[in-house]
Simulated assay, not measured.
Amino acid sequence: MKAEQWVFWALAIYFALMSAVYPYITLKTEGHVEIIGTVVILLTLVFTLMVAGFLYATGRRMDKRPEDRQDGTIAEGAGAYGFFAPSSIWPFWCGLVVMLIFLGWIFGFWLSIIAAGIGVWAVAGWSLQFYRGDYAH
């Protein structure tokens, strides 16, 4: 977790600097301090600190991973990464539903309602695709 936490600590330093510089820049260019931009940068700093703190606390409680140790080898990190579907039609249906929802914003709300109904079917099919058929387990 060492590499991940350093990324977020670096981002926190960057957002801390930007939260100090941004009001000064907006004051010089626009004549007034832009409050919303300053608040957004401060909230981003807070959220980045939350993730960095979580990774730091979690990393202290866990055993070191092979990539965090100096003597770690590539073979130690090998293993199963998960199960992936050999083929599935459900991502196509879910993509079609998203397209229909956005088209509903253009052509009429009724199309979005129909797409939401098809979407329930498509998401259920994608979630339950391994409970029946050729790849049931």
Rank of each mutant, 00 (worst) to 15 (best):
A115N: 06
S127N: 10
A20D: 08
W90N: 12
A12S: 15
L103W: 07
A85E: 14
I25Y: 03
L49F: 05
W105L: 15
G77C: 09
W126R: 08
F109A: 07
D134S: 14
G37V: 08
A136G: 08
V97N: 00
P23Q: 12
P23D: 15
L55R: 06
V46Q: 03
Y22P: 00
G82P: 02
L96P: 04
T73E: 12
M1N: 05
E34T: 14
F107Q: 03
Q129N: 06
P86G: 11
S112H: 08
I106Q: 06
W6D: 08
V51K: 10
L103Q: 04
A85Q: 08
T38E: 03
L128H: 09
A85N: 12
S19H: 07
V7E: 05
L111N: 00
L45Y: 14
G37E: 03
I114L: 09
A12K: 07
Y131C: 00
T44R: 00
T48W: 01
L45Q: 11
I41C: 02
K64G: 03
W126L: 15
W121C: 00
V39M: 13
M99C: 11
S127K: 12
F47R: 01
Y131D: 03
A136I: 08
I25G: 05
V123S: 04
G104T: 13
E4K: 08
G59P: 02
A52T: 04
I35S: 04
H32D: 06
L103H: 00
G125E: 14
I101Y: 03
S87G: 02
F130W: 07
T44L: 11
I25T: 11
L43N: 10
A20Q: 10
L45C: 12
T29I: 05
V98R: 01
A116C: 07
G79A: 05
R132K: 09
F92A: 12
G59T: 06
P66K: 02
T48N: 05
E76F: 00
G37A: 11
V98D: 04
G53A: 08
W93F: 15
V46L: 14
Y81I: 08
G119W: 05
I113T: 11
G79T: 06
R61I: 01
L45W: 14
Y22E: 14
D71M: 09
M1S: 07
Y14R: 03
W93L: 13
E76G: 02
F15G: 02
A75G: 00
A12L: 05
G108V: 04
P86A: 15
V21R: 11
G108E: 05
Y81L: 13
A75P: 01
L55I: 06
W126D: 09
A80P: 01
D134I: 12
H32P: 00
G119F: 12
I35M: 07
W105I: 09
I36F: 06
G104V: 07
G125D: 14
L42A: 15
L55H: 07
A16H: 01
I25A: 10
I13W: 10
F47H: 02
V98H: 07
H32N: 06
F130Q: 12
P66G: 04
R65P: 03
G72E: 07
Y24P: 00
H137K: 13
F47Y: 05
P91M: 03
H137C: 09
F84E: 12
Y56M: 13
I114A: 12
R69F: 01
G53M: 00
A52V: 10
T44V: 09
D68K: 06
P86R: 09
W90H: 10
D134F: 15
G53N: 14
V40P: 01
